[in-house]
Amino acid sequence: QEPLTASMLAAAPPQEQKQILGERLYPLIHAMHPFLAGKITGMLLEIDNSELLLMLESPESLHSKIEEAVAVLQVHQMSESSHKSA
């Protein structure tokens, strides 16, 4: 698969750009967290496209961001289950 570039991304409509980035991120995230991959990818897709492109080129920063997302999710899930509203 050819590397994704900013110009390739810019050629796509905005909504499509996130999908394209997600398609690149998902397999990488899936390799680390198969069960959370869809959720983590969705969280990372809220980051700026330019930053996501940098992450795709830098496995280390991508990995640390993935771990950050997992941590955020875990805290979120704990607080959700402790609230027990509704």
Partner: peptide, 21 residues
């Protein structure tokens, strides 16, 4: 509070992801 990641983000559904062999 350093994380800007949103745990309520919409889940991403891959269109073309195939399991690696």
């Amino acid at each position: 509070r350093k994380s800007t990641l949103n745990p309520n983000a919409k889940e991403f559904n891959p269109r073309s992801f195939a399991q690696p062999k």
